[in-house]
Design a binder for these strands. Structure first.
Lengths: 151, 151
DNA sequence: TTCACTGCAAACCTTTTGCAATTCT
DNA sequence: AGAATTGCAAAAGGTTTGCAGTGAA
């Protein structure tokens, strides 16, 4: 069980990106975050920890991380969140890293990620009824997470 | 078969909103649009038609229309689009006006809207596997619309 | 006539760009 | 050393706010 942080650093190193202080700090913040964060929120968290980073750098780092599929964006807010490490075994190959379904709690703003939802039927329905050739989709659920459900 | 424009004006009048020139113009633009538009794009289209409207007014009008469920936003871009008039007969009551599924064409940027996709199974799967109580969702499909499919 | 609504000015927040200085490897 | 990356300054873009003036009902 590798941590997200270790995984991300490994991916970046592997692809010849430099492991700089700002990059490490952003990844540490993302690693610890339980909800999605904006570029500014990430910058603030880093600054508060003592060694400030420029906002522009945060933007550029997030861009890099997104290109390497280490984070993805919540459509509704534009905030980012680390990509969960996938359990290869129970994910169909074709949907790979690109099919994330988010569970966004309206109480605590926490975000969970679900892979492997079976969307085949729905996609088929769209293709049949609308004659639209689907090659990707984004799906976000809103509601209450386990902790915020009362009773 | 009422037009979107007539429908929207009726709803607003009914709820004691004033039918002003800027509101009429924004609704006309939305009525004719075949893809989603940003506030700026709407302002530009109106300006080009001869009688300019202030950007701030466009923002406020869009806010009003959104509150009254006459437009909704495409999550990915933040642009807005008229809500399609629903065919009451084949839509389950509970999902009513709030369950839109968008088909976004990556070729022509056109947007279609689909109601009545059967998401029950997927929602059930989420609730069961993640213990998350779903009360809403947003779903956007990306791909090729009928016209842009070759062959 | 009255009050909702608009237009204008200005502020605010977010994101992007160019370039010189820094720092990983 | 050399190239990638950062920080700074500045601009660009999008959105919001306050207030006085306008116009729909």
């Amino acid at each position: 069980m590798t941590s997200y942080l270790a995984h991300a650093l490994h991916v970046l190193k592997d692809r010849k990106y430099r492991i700089t202080q700002p990059r490490k700090r952003v990844l540490e913040i993302l690693n610890d975050a339980h909800s999605a964060l904006s570029a500014y929120e990430i910058k603030d968290l880093i600054d508060r920890a003592g060694e400030p980073v420029d906002t522009v750098s945060v933007y550029r780092i997030l861009e890099c991380l997104e290109e390497n599929h280490l984070i993805h964006r919540v459509l509704q807010t534009g905030k980012v969140r680390k990509c969960q490490l996938e359990d290869e075994s129970d994910c169909r190959r074709e949907e790979h890293n690109h099919c994330h379904h988010l569970l966004i709690c309206r109480q605590c703003s926490g975000i969970e990620e679900v892979h492997c939802l079976n969307m085949a039927q729905v996609v088929t329905q769209v293709q049949r009824e609308s004659d639209f050739q689907v090659d990707a989709h984004h799906l976000e659920f809103f509601g209450l997470c386990r902790k915020c459900q009362v009773g």
